[in-house]
Design a binder for these strands. Sequence first.
DNA 1: AAGATCCGTTAGTCATTACTAACATTAGTT
DNA 2: AACTAATGTTAGTAATGACTAACGGATCTT
Lengths: 108, 108
Amino acid sequence: MTNISAALLALAEPTRRQLLERLAAGPRTAGALAEGLPVTRSAVSQHLKVLKDAGLVADRAEGTRRIYRIDPQGLGPLRAWLDRFWSDALASYAAEVDRTADSKETRK
Amino acid sequence: MTNISAALLALAEPTRRQLLERLAAGPRTAGALAEGLPVTRSAVSQHLKVLKDAGLVADRAEGTRRIYRIDPQGLGPLRAWLDRFWSDALASYAAEVDRTADSKETRK
DNA sequence: AAGATCCGTTAGTCATTACTAACATTAGTT
DNA sequence: AACTAATGTTAGTAATGACTAACGGATCTT
């Protein structure tokens, strides 16, 4: 489905981003991905399912192991959405940059 | 801080994305942003706070109103992160595309 | 100065989600 | 066929997040 909402929801979780960043270096087995993480393999398995459902990773069975890799096609729509949003934001910002006289700015 | 984690967490919420997409068309007051949404102004106010803390929007006070606009600098780091991630994924994918002989693929 | 408007904040509730522990499943091994 | 290894799944719990309702604080109007 390559849903943007699902992709963003999946990326919002720190542990899942950690898994993806490990996978960006190359395919790994589920066990290798779980190593060193402060959570159980069970949690990792569930996170991988979320990433897979979001179209961000794909997996292939090899014996009793399961090798995961990043699915580039899942990231595509997200990148496209962010790019469109980015240019809209810049356009809106540029259009209003003149009239923002000198009112008090608030930024955290 | 322009934290990537905070930005992704903020973007993961549908209502917040809706607010951002309205703001991409131009600055709006908090009240105008709340109009038509199926949640109370209170909820909108809280969402705007999250977006502001994530560096995705900025606001300026004008009388009793508060005018929000998109903060392009907040989106920058997120875009950079996604781009780096994207190219890493492509490189990893290209490097492994040869040896994926004909094992059974699984995709949901 | 009193009231109205616009907005943020707090308290409390409900739904969602991330987690662990135990079990189920499949594929190799001896 | 029994055993082990690697992984997914389920049940139940704890933590997090989104929401409403009520309140508080400014600013403008009359």
